[in-house]
């Protein structure tokens, strides 16, 4: 599904990622953990094609395509999705027109006709239920006046609408209370199938309790310094990062 080889990335000439190798297979859930400033968000931004980052070396193959050659919109249509850490507010653009535009662009890419009005509303209702998103919120402008938790839920709602093959959740758990976390995690779990994959970026074990990753990576100083099974996350929660830094000599 996703194959990252020796990825080097810089911002304004400053190296942030210094040789990332990562393979995510079909149906797998990978967690990426690591201290602040280690490059986790840079990795997710590079994957979805944010223009502020320069890839200086390496390649990324996504579903057989050279991801780095695709525009951000094409990456989305190819099945990539990022749940943003800080979703933006878009006053004046209703959730309905935003989602309809996005769905229809995805359909056009696959050679399908635009979705019918009734079909679209049915889809909205169905997916809203996934994350228990109040229909009052989908009647508003995108994220306008949403609480932090509502914004995160709205990200997962969009993920449900677009059905990506690879979803990246960038600190989706930050700013969520316990109930909201449970609802969001349950929503994400409902979207899990044997053919789609996820990369979960987080600082905490609590989201992973729900999502049960197959693999856990530790990103530090622009490199993946340790990869192990789900037990690694528990160990990090208990002991912090210092022992790995020592172990790997970083």
């Amino acid at each position: 599904m996703l194959n990252i080889k020796n990825l080097h990335v810089s911002i304004n000439g400053k190296g942030i990622l210094k040789g990332i190798d990562l393979s995510v297979g079909k149906g797998e859930v990978h967690a990426i953990m690591g201290p602040n400033g280690s490059g986790k968000s840079t990795l997710s931004n590079v994957l979805i094609g944010h223009p502020g980052y320069e890839v200086t070396k390496g390649r990324i193959i996504f579903n057989g395509k050279n991801l780095l050659e695709l525009s951000p919109e094409d990456r989305s249509r190819e099945g990539l999705f990022l749940s943003f850490q800080y979703p933006v507010e878009i006053p004046g653009v209703s959730m309905v027109s935003f989602m309809r535009a996005a769905i229809n662009e995805h359909r056009k890419y696959r050679g399908l006709e635009p979705i019918s009005a009734t079909g679209f509303l049915k889809l909205m209702r169905e997916k809203q239920a996934f994350v228990e998103l109040d229909s009052k919120l989908t009647g508003r402008s995108v994220n306008e006046g949403f609480s932090g938790g509502e914004k995160k839920r709205n990200e997962i709602f969009q993920m449900a609408m677009l059905e990506p093959t690879l979803a990246i959740l960038d600190e989706t758990d930050s700013g969520l209370d316990i109930d909201a976390l449970r609802i969001v995690a349950a929503g994400v779990n409902k979207l899990r199938t044997s053919y789609n994959s996820m990369i979960v970026i987080t600082h905490y074990q609590r989201l992973l309790d729900y999502l049960k990753p197959d693999v856990v990576h530790v990103l530090y100083n622009g490199k993946i310094i340790k990869t192990a099974g789900p037990e690694l996350a528990l160990e990090l929660e208990a002991k912090g990062y210092d022992w790995i830094k020592e172990e790997t000599g970083e």
């Binding site: 979805i48 094609g49 223009p51 525009s71 951000p72 919109e73 249509r77 943003f84 979703p87 996005a102």
Partner: peptide, 13 residues
Amino acid sequence: NVLFYLQSRGIPR
């Protein structure tokens, strides 16, 4: 940032 957010959902720039 808003333009990019929309693009990231498949909407052309």
